[in-house]
Design a protein around this nucleic acid. Structure first.
Lengths: 205, 205, 205, 205
DNA sequence: TATGAATGAGTATTCATTCAT
DNA sequence: CATGAATGAATACTCATTCAT
């Protein structure tokens, strides 16, 4: 749905895939480092040591590239986080989920930083919406499920799920800035702190 | 370091102040509406119904203007929030503080939205820092004090203050997006939910 | 209807008018010389010895500039041709009209050449339509009137007016290529030949 | 001077000829449909469902391809029109010639449209000449002969042959735009009108 | 032969900034 | 003080062409 071959889905051709991956990676680094605004195709190309035309050759537009970036980040995030969630009960799921996200952010600082910056750059035109609202939805879906389950089985108190999810992801968005902070932050501890924080914020009684 | 180059720091001159205020205000509206990226000096000037040269005359650079925007937003925020904090005890201070911030965001949607967008656009060059780290510091100072007091007098449990502050402000940053959400969000309720959330997250026992 | 000031119609400001005229003139020369396709803003700017930004400053877009070119050519053409038409009777009107058009083309070779090239460059998207069908309409209106009058009063035979007008303007479009031909063409004679041609083609009997 | 650089002018090789024909055909369609300007090699290649490199392999340059297009159109035109000319006398030849050309245009709308658009796009550099003056010469040769014969045997009045030929072809160039006009034009009638027009314009007395 | 990947110049347009008036 | 005009660099994107495979 992203790329250029209009003859629907032939074969992405090995080198094509490699190039796209390389460009996507460089774009992520660029955005993380200098911001979404300043990450021009020229700068991304220079970082990849290719000509700008190459990017246009492999991606239909800058928007197409950005969507590839988002997709890549989301995919790796899901792959990393999903198996780390302990589904034995909602409280455990929440704690492990939060810690997994922080761990992922710690492991892929550029990825999460890039995603954050893209999401807040402004997007289509509507002032309040992030780059792609559907992306936000996908990000939050699992967390929403955990909270709903916990309220159902009585392990969580009756709070507004939308507010809680927003707060949790608001907290997540602070992580990238901490990753390379000086002095360095103990990220596993950061994750545990957040887990404790939201466990207390959500649990019954 | 800010404005007029020639006369070192003589008289801010009435008209000077008025113009700066007018331009600052228009810049805020512009940034909130069309995003930091798209808020060019030309567009800001058009909104203020002045020529672009006027902006350059009163502000040394676009960066200078943005700093003025930040300063203005911060000042009004402090003026709004400060007197709304109930200092009778730390827990009351935290709750009232959180609700005051949300109320401020609700009342000055453009201000907070602009600030948020500026902070995430990429900034000076350092990868992890927002547009101006000192600004962030100022924003968080009061909240930090409240938490410290509460831990001292035993009304708060022993958590990492840095993490808690980050989480609280992460939650704050979600508010602007909710302000103009469709369907509209009940913002006082949103503030109360957040207050309850962080009260539970912080209180002793 | 053409230009940039959105505050509807203040004052075109002397220098503004001068610049627009200069740029329009250079655009005409460029298009006439190297073709509509190759007449990039950069080349037009170079010919005017200004930076490309100046063009963008005075014209909202390239399309806007082209429309200004068309309008300018049309205006001068009407001003030149209109008073040269002898309205004493349809046959005289047709002959004088044709000769006036050829004379205009001879006098303003670049203008007519530019118009011709613009009209055939392809325009909006529809394959058969010229750049702006309405322009074509305006060009042909007077000639259409003359022919209709002549058919009414019996001085012209009953032919299809649309075909005749097309043929006449088809003949006009050949003039620019003759203007600078080598060996040079006797243009007044060319005009007289065409007048004779279409007089015979149209007259009764 | 045209294609393959290495083997001077050995064997055009069957597949070579086929490919060239295919590409030429697609180029014509492209130019007719989206205009000479927009008909990039990439788009032509896409239409032919081949890679862009193939075009560059079979044609030395885009210019070379365009010349092939012109040649192909000219060849088919001659093949179509030539046998339809009634040579019994000059007036019959003129009428039948004109109707044959219009008929050809009607039958091969894309061909004539493409030729027209190429000729007016700007060409080599000389301002007044169409893409290839020699082509124009070839187009007009037969018509020129007919007119000369008619003047010799007294069936045509003494007019300037150059002017008359120009007018006739000027009229021809209006046909492609009529072909796909909305509402549709009755083209045989159009041809008959033009024939009548130029018969009256040329005949003696 | 044919391909798809790559290049580098070129496209229109926007931008922050400067400066004479 | 303010303006409008001008600049030159930067923007995303397209193009004809080349070349290793």
């Amino acid at each position: 749905m992203t790329s250029k071959p209009d003859s629907p889905d032939q074969k992405p051709s090995f080198i094509e895939a490699v190039r796209r991956a390389q460009i996507t990676e460089c774009a992520i680094e660029c955005i993380a480092e200098i911001g979404y605004v300043n990450a021009s195709l020229a700068k991304i190309a220079k970082r990849a040591d290719i000509s700008t035309g190459v990017i246009s050759y492999h991606f239909a537009s800058k928007d197409d590239l950005i969507r590839a970036v988002i997709a890549h980040v989301m995919d790796t995030a899901v792959a990393y986080i999903q198996p780390r969630i302990d589904w034995s009960n909602p409280r455990a799921a929440l704690r492990s989920g939060i810690e997994a996200v922080v761990a992922y952010y710690a492991a892929h600082r550029d990825y999460s930083l890039a995603l954050l910056k893209i999401n807040l750059a402004g997007g289509a035109g509507t002032p309040t919406e992030p780059y792609d609202p559907e992306i936000q939805e996908r990000r939050q879906r699992v967390m929403r499920e955990i909270l709903a389950q916990g309220q159902e089985d009585g392990s969580f108190r009756p709070f507004d799920i939308g507010v809680m999810v927003a707060a949790i992801f608001g907290a997540f968005d602070t992580v990238p800035r901490k990753v390379a902070a000086d002095p360095p932050v103990d990220l596993p501890a950061y994750g545990r702190e957040l887990a404790e924080l939201f466990d207390r914020a959500t649990r019954a009684d």
